[in-house]
Each structure stands twice: as structure tokens, then as C-alpha cells.
Amino acid sequence: MNLLFEGKTCYLRTLTVEDAEDMVRVLQKNRNYWAIYEPRHRDSYFTIAVQREKIRESIYQARENREYSFGIFSHESNQLIGHISIYSIKRLPFLSALVGYSMDEQFIGRGIASEAVKLVTTFGFEQLRLHRIEAYVSPDNAGSLRVLEKAGFQKEGLLKRFLFINGEWKDHYYYALLEDDF
């Protein structure tokens, strides 16, 4: 299942095993930057073999309609500059999913992540026919808070000591966008 969504500053494309090397490049380049808000990964995570396997798994998950993972590509260079997923897809009675994303630090602050979130939520509401799309974000991650708010998400609450990141439990805000507000 090859999906492609075009935006003004970026496009989203289903990753293929051929993208594993580029994915490793982006992961290694942003390893310390992303580790501020995400759990640290073992060294093996940053290998082509592991990334190929993760991409294969994401292709399987898409076929099963459980999760869709995309590379975020720059229109200027056709370069992989991040990734975004719509995952934990639940059918009735929920009709909901979560969205998660990471951008190359070099490309933050340009509206690209906001556009990627809008593209993936459009897919979620229009093609997957979801009722609700949710996201978790660290209160300290001002950039990601802006991304979600620019994409129309609203803060619904605080999840105390929600994720174990780098040796401690961290609070996260709970954001959501409903189809009626989309």
C-alpha cells in the first residue's frame, strides 16, 4: 500500500525498505535532540537492519489497518526530514487513533511539522473515517505544542507521570481533534 499526500512545504509518503538508510541518517543526526522528549533507544535501533524491519512491520500494520507510518519529505530536496504515524487505530465504538511525529532539528520552525500533522489528520478523518485523533506531548516541548495547536488540536488534560523518559516519569498533555472540529 503506497500512499502519498502532498502539501505546500512537504509531502508524506509510505516508507519502503529502500528508505531504511535515509531513516538511519535522520535518526543518527537527531539522536540527542529527539532524546530530550522521547525514550532513548539502544544502539542497534540506529542500524539499517533494524530500520528495515521496522518499515516491514509498518507495511504489515497498514495492511491490517492498525497503523500508517510515513516519511516526511522536503519539497525542496526530496530529502527525508522526519516521520509521522497515525497509530493505535481503534474501530467502533471509539473510531480513534493517536498521531506521533518527529522532525529533523534542522527543519523545525518552518511550519513543516504542522503541515504534516494536518495532512495525516486529513487522511485519518477523510479516508480512515475516524471520529477522534489524539496526541500526547511534553509540557516542555513548546514547538510540538504549537504544531498541534496550529493543526487544530485542543488540550484536554494532563497525564501525570505518563511516560518513562531517560530515567524518570514525565507528565504529558493530552490533545485531541474531533471530526466535527476538523
Results as ranks from 00 to 15, higher is better:
residue 74 S to C: 02
residue 55 I to E: 09
residue 109 G to H: 00
residue 139 P to S: 10
residue 72 I to P: 11
residue 22 D to K: 11
residue 86 I to C: 11
residue 130 L to W: 01
residue 88 S to F: 04
residue 39 P to F: 08
residue 67 E to F: 04
residue 24 V to C: 12
residue 141 N to H: 15
residue 143 G to N: 11
residue 136 Y to I: 08
residue 135 A to S: 12
residue 69 S to F: 03
residue 115 E to T: 00
residue 75 H to N: 14
residue 136 Y to C: 05
residue 67 E to C: 07
residue 111 G to S: 05
residue 114 S to R: 10
residue 146 R to F: 02
residue 36 I to G: 08
residue 47 T to I: 07
residue 140 D to Y: 14
residue 44 S to L: 07
residue 85 S to P: 05
residue 48 I to F: 06
residue 149 E to P: 05
residue 34 W to K: 08
residue 91 R to H: 12
residue 133 I to Y: 09
residue 56 R to C: 09
residue 49 A to E: 15
residue 27 L to S: 11
residue 83 H to T: 10
residue 93 P to S: 08
residue 62 A to N: 12
residue 88 S to P: 07
residue 150 K to R: 14
residue 125 F to S: 07
residue 65 N to L: 06
residue 51 Q to V: 05
residue 123 F to Q: 09
residue 40 R to D: 04
residue 130 L to Y: 01
residue 72 I to L: 11
residue 27 L to N: 15
residue 127 Q to W: 03
residue 24 V to S: 12
residue 118 K to M: 06
residue 149 E to C: 10
residue 16 T to Q: 13
residue 52 R to G: 11
residue 109 G to F: 00
residue 112 I to Q: 03
residue 48 I to W: 09
residue 92 L to T: 08
residue 135 A to P: 00
residue 49 A to F: 06
residue 142 A to M: 09
residue 118 K to I: 02
residue 115 E to N: 06
residue 59 I to V: 10
residue 103 M to A: 04
